[in-house]
Amino acid sequence: MPVYFIRRMMQSVLVLFVMSLLVFVGVFAIGNPIDILISPEADQHEIERATRALGLDKPLWEQYGLFVVNALKGDLGRSFVFNIPAIDLILQRMPATMELAITATFMGVLLGIPLGMWAGLRPESFSGKLIMSGSILGFSLPTFWVGLMLIMIFAVFLGWLPSTGRGQTREFLGVHLSILTWDGLRHLAMPAFNLALFKLSLVIRLARAGTREAILQDYVKFARAKGVSSRRIIGVHVFKNIMIPIVTVLGLELGSTIAFAVVTETVFAWPGMGKLIIDSINLLDRPVIVAYLMVIVFMFIFINLVVDLLYSVLDPRVRISESKG
């Protein structure tokens, strides 16, 4: 296990390095931020001074070296637009995105597992087929369009829910959260559901397939032969078995949920990292773009590691085979 762990770590560091190089070269090699940041009337002198101040006069490899050294110190450059450290800007926006992504994941699990198990227990019934058709739609509908439809129905026509922003937040452990206030919850409901839709479809499919497989297993039949109630068989025997693939996939998907929050945040004007990156791309605020991408890549690598560890906790078979190997 330690050998495996170290190999995974080294692989992760390598990926991080390659991605940083790609992102940095890509973002800094093309376009000229000076054109955007300095008014067209500025004279040559002013432009040079700004270029030097931003470090844009140095050769590219030197800029990258500086970037890596600074990145290791936790400094990913200053935002051209906000003139504050890019990493601070991202960390400011991160709680909003995390709150959205985690709420969405929970929504997907809490709705998806019962629906998927129901469909798995009654695959031929009308309700089972309806749930499956719904999950096919959830897979194929573009997130942003579903978001628009939610706004159209619940905000514009019915007027039940607000369509933009986080609403009132409350501070908890130094982080502002919407979920702690009623107004914030009302603001969170639609974006979280929008982001959850894809996960929900995924969980329904996994839960349905897992349930269908599990109920055919001998251990379910043996549990029935023991006289155990069907509620306990489904709630304990089947449930614990389908949780393994679901937790694995959802863990791996948390990264992509955060990445896809870009779309939902734009639709619902949710002030998270995703909205920040879209604004930054449009403004060519490169340190912020680079910092965002590095943070996301880092999160991905971290999540993959955690999921691997969590997986071995959930499935006793993995635990034993790894401690042997």
């Binding site: 390659v18 890549v297 991905f300 993959n304």
Partner: peptide, 20 residues
């Protein structure tokens, strides 16, 4: 493998941020 471990939208975002 590495590419498929990142979501499609992230890769598209990186490229479009770079390419315009």
């Amino acid at each position: 493998d590495i590419q498929l471990s990142f979501p499609s939208i992230l890769i598209a975002l990186i490229l479009l941020a770079v390419l315009g």
